[in-house]
Design a protein around this nucleic acid. Structure first.
Lengths: 344, 344
DNA sequence: CTGAAAGCGCTAACAC
DNA sequence: GTGTTAGCGCTTTCAG
């Protein structure tokens, strides 16, 4: 292994000079800089970031802590977000640490952060009552939340969409198409994103002078199977819905499978609108109308924000709300078939 | 930050004793062990793995170096493999470093390994001529390849399926159903996996006494769009195929979209068999027949193998060939509709 | 402008 | 059984 001493010897300077050259200190003459740089090149030297991390007491990596293993790896939403995160890190000589929380997310957080593995963390979801977020705040760990913290919760940085408004628009779209019995298929009702989207859904119904029927709101889990099961339940209701707002495309797709299996036609018997705009929406039959939330951009924004938090902790917490837009395809039954999209 | 000294003071021992307790050295009395452990608990102490790594000259993380950003994040094959890798790391106090190679994969490898970030690397694909594999071997970096190295190449550890045989079976299945004009839709022809699957396809044709028509073999890229474009080309041929072997489910699904768009019915006009058995295969219409390659198990095996390579370098290189099986659904037109699967 | 020295948190001889 | 010492590779005062 080539160390800083090897480089120093070859360039006939001291290790500290090499270190200064690497950080491009202005106090070093151009001449020595050149000599050191060529020594670095000759030896194909790569500074040991572990040693650097030890003295600088920071790591170049950022972590993602995930627990719901299948929800994480099987839902395209996360791959897309990951891609976005990755696209900013690749330019920053920073790496992404994917840490699986066996049971206890807080323990995993402490393990990853206090052990110096990562300098900060991206939290993938926000629960209505979220001890993990509290702990992050308490430990003053640089962190960015994907989704918003519950009102009045810790002053944490976050990136989110306006989910209330987005769900309002999706629901209104169905209402305008004439539907009056509209079901809501959500993820876990412990998640803020579910709460927000359900709120938008309810607001829309109420603004149309309709009653909100609690039985039409079915929480589930963010997998295709979750949508399938939730839909089975909705279709069994005596007040069977004619349209569905699904809080995630993968739920919507599961719901479509259930509906088709039971002999319903989409969108004629049941209209569906999803959320996220994953690649799959274009491939299913019929193509799924959905709310585009800019998944990749969510990841990019979160990563960039976290890097800022780490590099200049003084900036304080930041928030970003990314715009969404309703993408109309076939599954909602709107007449405009030329995939005209309403901007939000 | 709590350090080993803090723990030592609280337990009234020396730092080295604390260190020994953590590695459960037999030379320490049960009594002191208990005292030290409770000090660790009281202080919520987490050893700094960066410092550990510095002296042990190894990192607890393993890296995945990926370049084709979209192929990596958009193809469910990789999410599944990632899930498998993750499932072994989560029990090993080891983390996964996802490193994006901007341009130069070799440079990224050196950056990640020589800088001490990761102790070993999982290579996601093997090219017919693969300088990255050569370099890994040359630098003696612990590594496991997903896929096999080209004959006679570096003595690297790997996990793979028998792709020649698997493609042979997929093709034979179509031949037995009566098809004679069978197209092959592959990934980049620089990849060993493409070469192998194409070979199996060819062998099957020849064993049936058929000519191999080079125009029926279309290389593409591992995205839905790749399958779509490749299929367009196949359907335009004067000797239009009546069946397709696609080297990846996502290619198969793109191919199906192209076929349907042009008015062909599947499987009546065109039969299709894919590869991998991603979750999507069950959701498309008709459900896609495919070769199950045990994606998650591939990841698990690769991770376990890499960990062995890192912990006991003396073991030498290992190889594992995982069994595959043909999963018959609707897209191939086989009569057995009760999803009877032939074991390989 | 550059070098010497100290120390980041930890482990591993080497002592006793 | 346990403490002392040295050092992993690097950065950063402090000198000069």
């Amino acid at each position: 292994m080539t160390t800083i001493r090897d480089v120093a010897e070859r360039a006939r300077v001291s290790p500290s000079t090499v270190s200064r050259v690497m950080s491009d200190s202005p106090r070093i003459s151009e001449e020595t800089k050149e000599r050191v740089r060529s020594a670095i090149r000759d030896l194909n030297y790569h500074p040991n970031v572990v040693a650097q991390g030890l003295v600088k007491r920071t790591s170049g990596s950022i972590a993602i802590i995930h627990s719901g293993i299948s929800e994480f790896f099987e839902n395209a939403f996360f791959s897309e977000v990951l891609g976005g995160i990755d696209s900013v890190l690749r330019h920053e000589d920073s790496d992404l640490l994917l840490s699986a929380a066996s049971n206890d997310e807080i323990a995993t957080l402490e393990r990853v952060i206090r052990s110096g593995r990562a300098a900060g963390v991206i939290l993938l979801r926000s629960r209505v009552s979220d001890p993990l977020i509290d702990r992050v705040h308490q430990l003053k760990v640089p962190a960015v939340l994907l989704g918003r913290p519950m009102d009045g919760a810790a002053n944490v940085s976050y990136v989110d969409n306006d989910n209330v408004q987005a769900a309002y628009e999706a629901t209104t779209h169905l209402l305008k198409l004439g539907h009056r019995e509209i079901g809501f298929l959500g993820g876990s009702d412990e998640l803020v994103v579910t709460v927000d989207r359900m709120k938008g859904y309810r607001n829309a119904l109420m603004d149309f002078g309709l009653q909100v029927d609690a039985r039409l709101c079915v929480p589930s889990f963010f997998l295709e199977r979750g949508g399938y099961l939730g839909m089975m339940r909705l279709l069994a209701l005596s007040t069977r819905p004619t349209a569905i707002v699904a809080s995630d495309d993968i739920l919507a797709i599961g719901a479509m499978r259930a509906a088709v299996e039971l002999g319903y036609r989409i969108p004629d018997d049941i209209a569906i609108v999803g959320f996220n705009n994953i690649g799959l929406t274009d491939l299913v039959n019929p193509p799924l109308s959905t709310i585009d939330v800019q998944m990749s951009e969510l990841g990019r924004a979160a990563a960039a924000m976290l890097l800022r938090q780490i590099r200049t902790p003084s900036v304080g917490s930041e928030h970003a709300i990314l715009p969404h837009r309703l993408v109309i395809r076939k599954s909602c039954g709107a007449k405009l078939e030329n995939s005209l999209a309403e901007e939000c």
